[in-house]
Amino acid sequence: MDTTPFIVLSAILFTIGGIGVLTRRNAIVVFMCVELMLNASNLALITFSRANGNLEGQIAAFFVMVVAAAEVVVGLAIIMTIFRTRRSASVDDASLLKY
């Protein structure tokens, strides 16, 4: 099994996630796109782990998953708090610091 297709797929998924973060306005969807990017990098890590013949890459992917879980919990709590005070989940509406 060649590694290149897996890495290319990971790159494509990462790009789609990045475009999603840049273009979407809904904070929840932006967050999902961040998760997509993290997942894409995990795929690359696991592919490299197989290519190099040791499990360090899988350990790294494992830690990415743990940190992503913690990040999602706090991030979604922040989105909930913003929604509660501003009645909106759009990232454009939370612009109070601008003025």
Partner: peptide, 8 residues
């Protein structure tokens, strides 16, 4: 890839 694009 199709599902990811669908997310967009």
């Amino acid at each position: 890839v199709a599902s990811a694009l669908g997310m967009l």
